[in-house]
Simulated scan of single mutants.
Amino acid sequence: MIVDSHTHAWARWPYDPEVPDEATKGSVEHLIHEMDQNGVAEAVIVSARIEKNPLNNEYGAAAVRRYPNRLHQFADVDCVWSPEYHTPGAVDRLGRAADTLPIKGFTHYVGEPDGWFTTDEGKAFFSLAAERRLIASIAMGPAWAPALAEVVAANPDLVVLLHHMGGIRSTAPRSDLDAIAGLARYPNVHIKLSGFHYAVGLENGWDYPHPSAMWIAEGLYDAFGPDRLCWGSDFPALSRAMTYRQALEIVRLHCRFIKPGDLEEILGGTLKRLLNAAAPLRIT
C-alpha cells in the first residue's frame, strides 16, 4: 500500500504565476485522479490557509468527509502566515480544531526561531497534542532542532512528522544534516522523504531527479531507518518542478541506497501505522 504523507488541496490555485485553471489545478478531484493513476491508496491533506484559500481547513475537512477511505487531514493551526501565530490562545485553538474537524493531526509552519516551542504556552500546546493523539506535522529548518528536541523529550507520546527532509538545502553545510539527524535519538520523531525540489531550490526544479539532494535523503535514511521515514509527493506544488509520478519515482527508483525490503515501509507502511495509532476519525 502506498500512502502519500504530504499533499495539499485547494479551492483556488494559490501560487504565482497564475494559471488558467485555478479552480481545478490543485483541487481534491485532481488529487484523487493523480492517486488513482499512480497506485496511491491513501494520502494526507496538509491544510494551509494561504493566499486565496482562507477556508482551506474547511475545504480539507469536506474532502475527508467525501473520501473517508482515501484521505486524512492535518489541519492548519497557527501557522506562520496567520495572525494567531505564536500568540496567546494556541492551546484553545488546537483543541477547537480537534473537536470540530475530522483530523488525524495538525500542521504548524514556523518562521525564524523565536523560542515559542519552550514557552509555557508552547509546552502546553504540544502536551495537548500528545494527549489528544494528534500527529504534529511541522515545517521547520535545522535551526529549530534544539527547541524541538526539548519538546519531544518532554512528550514521548507526541508523534512528530517533519516536512520535506527537515528543510535541509542541498547547498547547506553538513552540520544542518547533523542537526536534523540528531533528532533520531527520539523515537517519536519521523521525517517526510519529500520536497527534493525544495532542497535544490525551485529555480533548479528542472534538474530531476535532483541528484544534488541525494546526500540529504541518504543521511536521513541512515539516521532514522525506514520505519521512521514517510514518502510524500507535495501535490500540487510539485507541478512547478515535476509530475506526481516523478515525485514517487525519486524515492522508488532513484534513492538507490535504500535496501531491498525497506521501500514498503517508506512508501506507506510507516505512515499507515502512525495514522492507525492517531486520534480516532471524527466525521460529522
Rank of each mutant, 00 (worst) to 15 (best):
E58P: 02
L275F: 12
L177S: 03
L148E: 10
G201R: 07
G115N: 04
I283V: 10
W10P: 09
F117M: 10
T100F: 07
P14Q: 02
I258T: 08
Q73Y: 12
T100D: 15
H30Y: 09
W231L: 03
A237Y: 13
A62C: 03
I32S: 05
A147P: 06
D262P: 04
W144Q: 06
W144E: 06
S194C: 06
N53Q: 04
D227H: 15
H72G: 11
Y85V: 11
I168F: 06
D21C: 07
F224H: 00
A278C: 12
L220F: 00
D99F: 11
L55E: 04
F257W: 12
R70S: 13
V28M: 03
Y244W: 01
Y186I: 11
E131Y: 04
D207P: 00
A247N: 06
P142I: 00
L134S: 00
D262N: 13
E218V: 13
P20V: 14
L220N: 02
F126H: 11
E84K: 13
F196V: 07
R174D: 12
D262M: 08
P102Q: 12
G60W: 05
T7N: 15
D78K: 02
I266N: 06
V189D: 01
H197R: 12
D262H: 15
N38Q: 06
E51K: 11
W206R: 15
M165A: 08
I266Q: 04
A247H: 01
T87G: 10
G26H: 02
A11Q: 14
I50P: 03
L31C: 12
R240V: 13
R273F: 06
P88F: 15
D76G: 05
T100Q: 15
L267V: 09
G167A: 14
L248P: 02
S27P: 08
V64D: 02
A145I: 01
C230N: 00
R273G: 05
K25L: 15
R133N: 13
N53I: 01
G205W: 01
L248Q: 10
P236Q: 07
A63W: 03
A277M: 04
L183N: 05
Y59C: 01
V28N: 03
E84V: 11
A149D: 08
V151D: 10
L148I: 04
N155V: 02
N69R: 14
H190L: 01
W144C: 03
R49G: 03
H30V: 07
K104I: 11
W206F: 12
P226V: 05
D207Y: 02
E218W: 12
R256G: 10
L148Q: 07
D178S: 12
A9R: 01
A247F: 05
N204S: 08
G141H: 04
R185F: 08
F125G: 00
E51S: 15
A179S: 14
A61W: 05
K52L: 10
A179F: 04
R174H: 11
T171C: 12
D234Y: 08
W116L: 05
P187G: 14
P14W: 08
A61K: 04
G232S: 05
G122P: 05
N155R: 09
D234C: 05
N56Y: 07
R256L: 10
K192P: 07
D176P: 03
A199T: 03
A129P: 02
P226N: 06
L71E: 02
A130R: 03
D92V: 14
P211V: 12
H72L: 13
I138A: 04
